[in-house]
Design a protein around this nucleic acid. Sequence first.
DNA 1: CTAAAAGCTCACGTTGACGTCAGAGGCAAG
DNA 2: CTTGCCTCTGACGTCAACGTGAGCTTTTAG
Lengths: 123, 123
Amino acid sequence: MRIGELAARTGVSVRALRYYEEQRLLVPERSPAGQRHYPERAVDRVLMIQELYAAGLTSRAILALLPCISTGESAPGVLALLAAERDRITARIGELTRARDRLDATIDRATTALVTGTPCAPA
Amino acid sequence: MRIGELAARTGVSVRALRYYEEQRLLVPERSPAGQRHYPERAVDRVLMIQELYAAGLTSRAILALLPCISTGESAPGVLALLAAERDRITARIGELTRARDRLDATIDRATTALVTGTPCAPA
DNA sequence: CTAAAAGCTCACGTTGACGTCAGAGGCAAG
DNA sequence: CTTGCCTCTGACGTCAACGTGAGCTTTTAG
């Protein structure tokens, strides 16, 4: 399929797909006239890339991990990379959870203040 | 205290502290010669700001939330903002958790592949 | 065959939270 | 007094993942 269809089917922009190619995350075939042609599996690959981006990985990290993820195989160094990224994500989840708990506490206090009629002077 | 000490005690850069002032997150007093002077409570405030940044909030959001958080009081609109940010964080945690689970599965498969001696051809 | 729609390649713009450098001034110690 | 560290104010640089527009070619629909 061509780039427009892939974009439509994955929900990412045409520009993003070209950017992925620039980063060598997704290198399509070319028609004689120079147009990009993607195989069906490109759809899943794009979705995977999006998920990894959403997890906060950089293009470089994704580039290192993609062959491993798509084939289920691994070079030793890549396995360590995978584990490192997973640990980073776990740590990040912890950060976010703590921040959310703090926000929750603040919301509770603020709600209580409202109910008890405590005045407020917003900045 | 002056800016250098606050930076050392909070672990953020001098540049970052000046940036916080630019964003009106932390506005210090000035000595007659123009040097910034921070009170003790600035330490906690900086740590709080860092935590909110780490949670993915923007300067604008933090600016809106800080008076509420530090005083425990709230304007009605701010309460909604707080809830919205909390929901954003919760959604983000979900994303990260899914991505991590996928990475875990990949790690398992890769480890198994290693153990069973499946060959690997990294890109 | 023609015109619209889709693709192509540069290449600069954007956003956020700072980093970094330049040049000048303040401040306690010897 | 001067040495040396800290601080000041601009103001430009950075990085990542694209957005956006120009100007041109390819493909498709009628």
